[in-house]
Amino acid sequence: MKTIKLLSLSVIATLLFSACSSDDDAPEVINEEEEITTLNVFLTPVGGGDTVTFTFRDLDGTNPENTGGTLQAGTTYVGETQFLNEREDEDVTEEVLEEGEEHQVFFTASNSLNVTTSYDDTDVNGNPIGIEFTLVAGEASQGNFRVTLIHEGDKFAEGASEGIYNPNLVGGETDIEVTFNVTVE
């Protein structure tokens, strides 16, 4: 008798549990909220002129689009960095600014490229963030211009506040690393 009771108990339990767990709703699509799909670097000549934009865009993780640009020799540019999640229509730049003390954008030009940068913004500790900066294009040249966004690096590391990115000192993890092909003419 006992066995029969137990058997029926377990069968009921089976039914109960499967009833609770049945879920026939089709799953909803998830967009990568955190992901940055797009990096824009806007460079506006001081004293007027057309804004030059470098863009890296990767909407589906397979076909990135990378547009460098051409700068005018002997020109100073007001620079602005922008991070977007275009899949979510979200401007990630604001978050980076809010957590400024955890983020820093580094600009590195290859030796062959005659370009220098300097920071124009600061976080709560007085260290640069790199959303606003100044770029000076020197003589005609060509090379790589790399933009790196580091999360939780050591912003007090030697050279970091001057924009020298030494990975061994700065550490942290890379949120963005994009290299643009840039020409100065």
Partner: peptide
């Protein structure tokens, strides 16, 4: 051990000591 990309991995391997 939470890293960003291949270069971070190279740095970690070369550094021989954790960053954090």
């Amino acid at each position: 051990s939470h890293i960003g990309n291949s270069r971070d991995l190279v740095n970690s391997i070369n550094r021989q000591e954790p960053f954090f």
